[in-house]
């Protein structure tokens, strides 16, 4: 392989990756590539990114280049290593042929598969992205206001719950305090309250539009929930409802679309996949079952995640010992001033 050929390859890399690619040396090739998952044109669907260094020696391509990670976001040490190992393995496999573009593609491909947050859903405590390959992957979403992630089903269930509660409370004349951060707005409750919520984890206020895309998927849920969700008994009404069936069909349609596109989450316009929602990646080409996922990526189960430790540690000590006093006739009396500062959420240091 001549130096000239390698130089042409570098030009090709530059042409493909443009500003995402920084050439440190044209010969022997040394470059830094900023990679983002393929879904990340929509920022709400981006959970990871990385800068990868590809450095070749003078014997390139007979000797494969060295791959290393310059920086990354959203990847813990285990996933960082995994990403590097895979790309490095690809390099060895391709040795003696010009491979830079292919390596870059492999890195992007792998990162796209890894585009999910670590950790558990704060509401059901099950992993947002099960790594064991056995558990079912449920769609999840991210609140754009605070970046906390939840299973779509879980956040919807909770959203419907607080709004059903709210209605029940307003009927009983009891003003509830769902929105502590906005106590100044409590005067004009009703319409305002309906379209807002507090993140279950950090209590940051978000608006209905932030989860509208998820709500839309359950269709006419709002009309059903008053009677539906609160009953519950032994089965989950959300999972039983017609709208949920429709929603599932949608997801399956999207999944097929992804398969057609070879893993790209690039939904057709009339299918409801929207910013803030993540859909499970399709199984690798070898598998057609549609059930198993990420066969190609045998990733060991991740240890206790620190990156998304939303569920318990963050809240330690929060809400401790704030005040006392009581009013026994809870439901009968609503004479308290709802704007009383005492109801505000004040974090103690």
């Amino acid at each position: 392989m001549t130096e000239e050929e390698v130089a042409m390859e570098m030009e090709a890399v530059e042409a493909v990756y443009g500003e995402e690619c920084v050439i440190l040396d044209s010969y022997p090739p040394h470059l830094h590539l900023h990679i983002m998952p393929r879904t990340a044109e929509i920022s709400s669907q981006q959970f990871v990114e990385a800068v990868v260094s590809i450095q070749a020696g003078s014997k390139y391509p007979d000797e494969p280049p060295r791959i290393s990670l310059i920086e990354s976001k959203g990847l813990d040490a285990q996933r960082q290593k995994h990403l590097m190992d895979i790309v490095q393995a690809k390099a060895s496999q391709l040795s003696s042929s010009l491979m830079l573009v292919e390596l870059c593609e492999e890195a992007v491909e792998r990162l796209t598969i890894m585009n999910h947050p670590d950790g558990d859903c704060p509401l059901c405590l099950y992993p947002l992205f099960p790594e064991d390959g056995e558990s079912k992957q449920m769609p999840f979403m991210k609140l754009m206001s605070c970046f906390h992630c939840f299973h779509c089903e879980c956040i919807i269930r909770w959203w419907n719950w607080i709004h059903t509660q709210k209605e029940a409370d307003s009927k009983s004349g009891d003003t509830k305090h769902m929105y502590r951060e906005t106590s100044d707005q409590e005067g004009n409750s009703g319409s305002v309250d309906k379209s807002m919520g507090n993140c279950p984890v950090c209590r940051k206020v978000f608006h209905a539009v932030d989860i509208e895309h998820v709500l839309d998927l359950v269709g006419a849920q709002s009309s059903q929930q008053d009677s539906g969700l609160v009953q519950g008994e032994d089965k989950d009404p959300l999972l039983q409802s017609d709208s949920e069936k429709i929603r599932r069909e949608w997801f399956e349609a999207i999944l097929r679309t992804q398969e057609e596109k070879g893993g790209l989450v690039q939904p057709k316009k009339n299918i409801s996949v929207v910013p803030g929602m993540y859909l499970p990646p399709p199984p690798p080409a070898s598998s057609s079952s549609g059930q198993t996922q990420e066969q190609g990526e045998v990733e060991p189960k991740e240890a206790e995640s620190e990156t998304n430790s939303s569920s318990s540690t963050n809240r330690r000590g929060r809400g401790r010992g704030r005040g006392w006093g009581h009013n026994v006739n809870r439901r009968k009396q609503n004479s308290q001033d709802p704007r009383k500062p005492t109801m505000q959420w004040v974090q103690r240091s």
Binding site: P122, L125, P200, V201, R203, S311, G317, R318, G319, G323
Partner: peptide, 30 residues
């Protein structure tokens, strides 16, 4: 027990474990 997180300030992202930690902290700061 008069502790806000057990009532109006409860959030479904809290757990028995996080409640216990809050309770112990309430006791400890008395």
């Amino acid at each position: 027990i008069c502790l806000d997180i057990l009532y109006d300030s409860w959030s479904p992202a809290m757990t028995v474990s996080s409640v216990c930690i809050s309770l112990l902290s309430m006791l400890s700061s008395s």
